[in-house]
Computed example of a mutant assay.
Amino acid sequence: MDDLTVVREFEADVAPLTDEARGAARVRLRRAIIQEGRPGALSRRLMLRAAVVGTATAAVAGGVVVAGRHEGGGGADAPRMAALSAAELLQKAAVRSRVVGAGMPIPRDDQYVYTKTYITRTYVKDGKRRTWTDESWMSVDGSKPSRRQEYGKVHHDPPLGKHEVMWPPTEYAELAQWPTDPDKLLDRLRGAWSAGDKSARWTVGSDKAHSAPLSQEDIDSMAFANAVQFFVVPRIMPPGLEAATFEAVARIPRIRIDREAVDGLGRKGVAVSYPKYDFAFIFDATDYTYLGLRQKGSTADLVDGKFKYRDWYHETRARQELGVVDRIGQRP
């Protein structure tokens, strides 16, 4: 499909832009599309295979991830948005991703992925609100030291070891090997279980599989969780992979839509989540651009081998900027 066809398809049911909107769009396109951070205080080195766990994924590294409901949305676009299903929204988000991501540079292995993320957290108990603007510089191939910021705290990460595994991978060369056909990608996100092996189940904090029957819903929930992982750890997606991710998620049964979502920057959006988990993608309610993630979490303490949770909060993570730079401290 050529670029003009993509644009025509995307704009087919969208009202003509005003001059003000076109100006805002130009500014937006000058800023690189983004992707970012991660929930909780999760080290880059800990975002491993545990990300695919079924219900236990919510406990990874002290961040229980759930989808809270937020007020907002509506307005002139509500009737058109109300007519869309979650799958239809994701298809439009995929078209939008191809349009906006067309100018994203292909990074070299010696460069860094720069991300800027705005985080808003509201505590359930007392309504206290905190915000952070985090910036990170992550080595493209993991061979160089990285600097990442999480909730205002700066971490200096050494290079990844030769045998360390990131899943999904962050290295561009590895991601370039992933399929951009949504059906094949969904099989990859579902993992070995898509081939009919439903006897093994991964457990958080373990590199071994434990025998336990898996339902199709378990497998689908793992696929959704794996798709989310593409957006919690900073990475540059090869052409078409982000769009294919949205299209793959659109094929997962039981995904649901929340038409009254707001991201951390106050932008009106619509959220897509899976019933088994309480985290969600947030998309712009007007042009379907991916805005960020929404979650509910808590502080976790490991007591006698079990997580105990306290200080529950609602959190939104709005991606503000993503780009490729040559050194730590440089901005696009």
Rank of each mutant, 00 (worst) to 15 (best):
A248H: 00
V140G: 01
R129V: 15
G103I: 05
Y172K: 02
P238Y: 02
R310K: 14
D287E: 09
L186F: 01
T286Q: 10
D77H: 11
P179E: 09
R327T: 12
V124G: 00
R22C: 05
G63S: 13
Q35R: 10
T18C: 03
D207R: 08
K162F: 09
V140L: 03
S139Q: 03
H210A: 08
Y309G: 02
D183W: 06
W312F: 15
E36L: 09
P234N: 01
R235I: 09
A243V: 02
L4K: 15
G196S: 01
G269T: 01
A32I: 09
T170W: 05
A250S: 11
V228H: 06
F230Q: 00
E174N: 08
L241A: 05
A93F: 05
L90K: 01
A24T: 11
I219L: 02
L186G: 02
F10D: 11
L29Y: 10
Y118E: 11
A24H: 13
S206Q: 10
G62Y: 00
R319A: 09
R130N: 15
L89D: 00
M138Y: 09
V232I: 15
G54I: 12
D2Q: 13
S139F: 01
R188V: 14
G72V: 03
D110R: 12
F10A: 04
A261Y: 12
A212R: 13
R254G: 07
Y277D: 12
M104C: 07
V113E: 07
L17D: 08
E36F: 08
M222N: 11
D2W: 08
P182K: 07
I34E: 14
R129F: 06
V303Q: 04
A285V: 04
L90W: 08
H156T: 12
A261E: 14
K125T: 13
G205P: 01
G40L: 02
A82L: 07
Y274Q: 02
V325S: 05
A24P: 05
G329M: 03
A87G: 03
D77S: 11
G142L: 02
V124I: 13
G264I: 01
R98Q: 12
V124P: 05
S206H: 11
S43Y: 05
G62T: 01
E242C: 02
R319N: 10
V303M: 02
T286I: 06
D157V: 02
A21N: 08
A59M: 13
I257Q: 02
T131L: 01
R108S: 08
D263S: 04
Y313A: 07
R188T: 14
A209E: 13
A94L: 07
M138D: 11
P39R: 06
D110T: 08
R148C: 06
I255C: 05
R317F: 10
F231H: 12
P105K: 03
I252F: 10
L241V: 03
D220S: 04
K306Q: 13
R108L: 08
P79G: 01
A300I: 06
P169C: 00
K208I: 11
G103F: 07
Y309P: 00
S136A: 06
D311P: 00
E9Q: 15
A94E: 03
R96E: 12
R251P: 03
F231V: 10
S206L: 07
E174M: 04
D278K: 09
A318Y: 13
G323T: 06
K276N: 13
H70M: 14
A223K: 00
D311S: 09
D287N: 08
F307C: 00
P39Y: 12
P169Y: 01
H163M: 08
T170V: 09
H210C: 04
